[in-house]
Amino acid sequence: MEVKKPAVAGTLESSDAQVMIEPGDGKIDLSLQSSVMNQYGRQIKATILETLARLEVTSAKLTVVDKGALDCTLKARVECAVFRSCDASDANIPWGGAVR
């Protein structure tokens, strides 16, 4: 999927994460801030990158502010931000396909 415009998903509330995505310059540029960085930073980063890979996003600038979100929440927020950024949210979301 191609990121066409800036989009945001999620909130800054506890147990959530705010994912901001913008068109990139050919690579994934991730800026991550987390309240549990020391404990889970690596896992959060892996989850975000995996989700992007599954959605076939290869070029994007991401800013994630994590407030202790579970993996499933992170995945959902990243997916939602990507779909919003390519106007997929009013077309067909690939339930059972890339989203599983």
């Binding site: 945001v8 999620g10 909130t11 800054l12 509330e13 506890s14 705010q18 901001m20 407030k67």
Partner: peptide, 11 residues
């Protein structure tokens, strides 16, 4: 956590 909600919304 009210500030977080306000800033999330304004963002």
């Amino acid at each position: 956590g009210l500030l977080n909600r306000v800033v999330s919304h304004l963002t």
